[in-house]
Design a protein around this nucleic acid. Structure first.
Lengths: 197, 197
DNA sequence: GTCTATACCAAGATAGAC
DNA sequence: GTCTATCTTGGTATAGAC
């Protein structure tokens, strides 16, 4: 890993912030706590990030980027069935990859507000885009409810400490399964079985 | 409780606080905002509630009480099927009755922390109790995931602004339906009278 | 380029006057 | 029952050490 001495502190800040955010919530985590955890001062944090909102946004950025790309890829599919399948699989992958972060997205108003202020223009758009693809054009109420329960349920369950002991493959299979059931998609075995023990 | 002229301000405080909490989140709402909205000072708020956490707890109390009663009633059922059905129906009713509040429960770390500190000993217990009843004794992973997705999905969807336009009956039917599907309970479409104690 | 010292204002909280 | 004054901590900003 080619990391200069500057990136070191910045990266440690991002990791420490995410950890504390999941423990105490975004607004429940002070810059003082983050600084103390790293043995630096509050002002040092401000050298790397102009505001707390900017730090928060940087913490969330990897998840946002993946989400963005997912929405684009799904929207590019021709058949609606393919759109739904790709979105569901991609969303589950994303949740598994960023377990704690996605839980924050769905459950921390502090995170949402911090992002709203900043460049990305907020998170609302993503929620609506995901729901739009999953529930289709001119959806009836039941479709909308199913899509919402699927998305929020998968996100919250994936980030829950209760399921932290599951390995990625297992969690992925379970979430995909429940998602397919809710969205009325045929169930099939997941990607490639890594081993056939 | 004795009803006196004191209750007037107290009640207005509770209503105003809930409204601002749903708008800005618990930690995004300052006591100053609440005081300003009522035309009093911060210190006046402190006359009615010793701490912000206590005010927060008082706002959440009706929902907590209903949850508590629901867990007790469900646990008292003999057959497991009856436990699940009663819990699901009761939970959906509760979500519909306290739409905004339940959304706060599932999505605001500020609320959770405020309650954790106070008497009720936290909300963790309820989550575990609900999950325990829904997924049964010695549940497999799939059952646990289904129960988690059902509970969090129902709570979040019920409180979502996206579904705020649905009337209570419609929302109740939809949530019950999706819950039954996730939990593998037979679907029925009519109200059943809640069994009397 | 990286950080410390320090000061400012808003917010949670307390003490005491009216 | 409500207000003024005050204390502490948290987010923010800047000046300056190295």
């Amino acid at each position: 890993m080619t990391a200069g001495p500057a990136e070191d502190t910045r990266t440690r800040l991002l990791h420490t912030a995410l950890r504390l955010f999941t423990e105490h919530g975004v607004e429940g985590t002070s810059l003082q706590m983050i600084a103390d955890a790293l043995g630096i001062t509050k002002a040092a944090v401000y050298y790397h990030f102009k505001t707390k909102a900017e730090l928060t946004e940087a913490v969330a950025e990897p998840g946002i980027r993946d989400l963005d790309e997912l929405v684009l890829r799904a929207g590019a599919q021709k058949r609606r069935g393919a759109q739904v399948d790709l979105l569901l699989e991609g969303f589950v992958d994303l949740v598994v990859r960023h377990r704690t972060l996605v839980a924050l997205f769905s459950s921390d108003p502090g995170l949402i507000r911090a992002i709203e202020k900043s460049a990305h223009g907020g998170m609302e758009g993503f929620g609506q885009a995901l729901l739009g693809i999953l529930s289709g054009p001119a959806p009836d109420t039941t479709s909308r409810v199913n899509a919402m329960v699927a998305l929020t349920g998968i996100a919250m369950a994936g980030g829950s400490p209760d399921l932290a002991s599951l390995d990625d493959e297992e969690l992925r299979t379970e979430l995909l399964d429940v998602g397919r059931r809710l969205l009325g998609r045929p169930r099939r075995r997941t990607h490639l079985p890594v081993s056939t023990l």
